[in-house]
């Protein structure tokens, strides 16, 4: 097993944990942080899988813009899921 393979497996596990955290978290602000963590890991994975164009898009839009739009929306509505 090469180092790259180990990194890919570890990143995939982190990705799934962050995604489950985002789904099951009742505090929506923390859930948004979870989705943004998913985006960070996903953009690294895209880069390793030789898709740098998609990695750039994921990093700029997934990490920064989507997160801030969700944070503003939560600020305007409710923070906790019932």
């Amino acid at each position: 097993m090469s180092w790259l393979m180990i990194i890919v497996v570890v990143l995939s596990v982190v990705l799934i944990i962050a995604a489950l955290f985002a789904v099951y978290q009742k505090d929506l602000l923390l859930a948004v942080i979870g989705t943004s963590a998913v985006s960070v890991v996903l953009s690294v994975l895209f880069y390793i899988l030789q898709a740098p164009d998609v990695a750039l898009t994921e990093a700029a839009i997934g990490v920064a813009l989507t997160t801030i739009i969700f944070v503003i929306t939560i600020k305007k509505t409710k923070r906790f899921e019932e």
Binding site: D53, A60, I61, L65, I68
Partner: peptide, 25 residues
């Protein structure tokens, strides 16, 4: 840089525009 060099390096108009918007943010 990303959108001017879109035909040479990874990236392009969408990515470059989004990066600029994050800077303004």
């Amino acid at each position: 840089y990303v959108f001017v060099h879109g035909h040479l390096t990874p990236g392009g108009g969408f990515q470059g525009g989004a990066i600029i918007a994050t800077g303004v943010l």
